[in-house]
Amino acid sequence: MSNSIEIKARLKGLFSLFGLLAIVLVSSLVSDRFLKVSNIITILRQSSILLILSLGLTGVVLTGGIDLSVSAIAAFVGCTVAQLLILGMPIPLVVLIGLTVGAAIGVFNGLLVGKLKMPPFVATYGMMMVVNGFSLIMMQGSIIYGLPESFTWFGVGYMGFMPIPVILAFLTAVFFIVLFKKTTFGAELYILGSNETAAKYSAIPVDKRLITIYGISGLTAGLAGLVLTARLDAAEVAMSEAFGLQTVAAVVIGGTSLLGGEGGAFGTVIGALILTIVVNIMNLMGISSFIQPIVIGFVIITTVFIDVTTKKNR
């Protein structure tokens, strides 16, 4: 019995991988430039920020929660970092402050969810509005640009032929795959997501784990904000707005269940790639960008619908 469940879970992981392969196949038929190395690297680079954001979110979703504030945190960190850089603060210090700010906001989310038992979507949605409000106050409607070159290197630089954001996203992905699959902390996240009462009785400090994972989600959001600012060579309040729902979409397409306890970081890598390719192709085919929110909303609802109905049948 438990074997068949495991097999089904694995099949589901393979399902999104097949999805990716199918999309790659169709895309290479539609455009012969698609499978060129340069284009593949472009797609990897385009997906890197979405991936970093979605990886932290994946951990939260594994616990059965959600973090709707990640893109707002990314923008806030981006704006903070840009302001500090303009003041001439040394880059390592600025990066450290940016990551700390992101993690701190995440920990605050974790306190609301873990200690106060607020529903995660209320806590993080409220946090999103508050953080956006503070970004507005900090920027006063302005755009900051012209950042130091040694900072923008994080966004536009290369190591060999690999863009730095891709390397950062790859390292983040490896970190999360190991964290979820090879550590006790990761195993506890899965238990928390599948059965919180069981987690309590097996002496897992639920609130502490929640605070940690929301903190980590804030941290990756901060990292994404840094990379995004470096790549744009600019910062403004709405800089990461488009990522808001895309992160949730990437996670659920990757096979992580919104009900918690199922999925993982590798799936999210595939999810982010699928989403980026789809958006990329829509751009290549000249489909109006206004349709994108419709497609993403539709994809999220359908994917979760399939997930929930297959779970019921078990």
Partner: peptide, 11 residues
């Protein structure tokens, strides 16, 4: 569908 309402209405 039995889907959490926040995700449906967000979509």
């Amino acid at each position: 569908g039995g889907i959490p309402s926040f995700i449906v209405t967000l979509g």
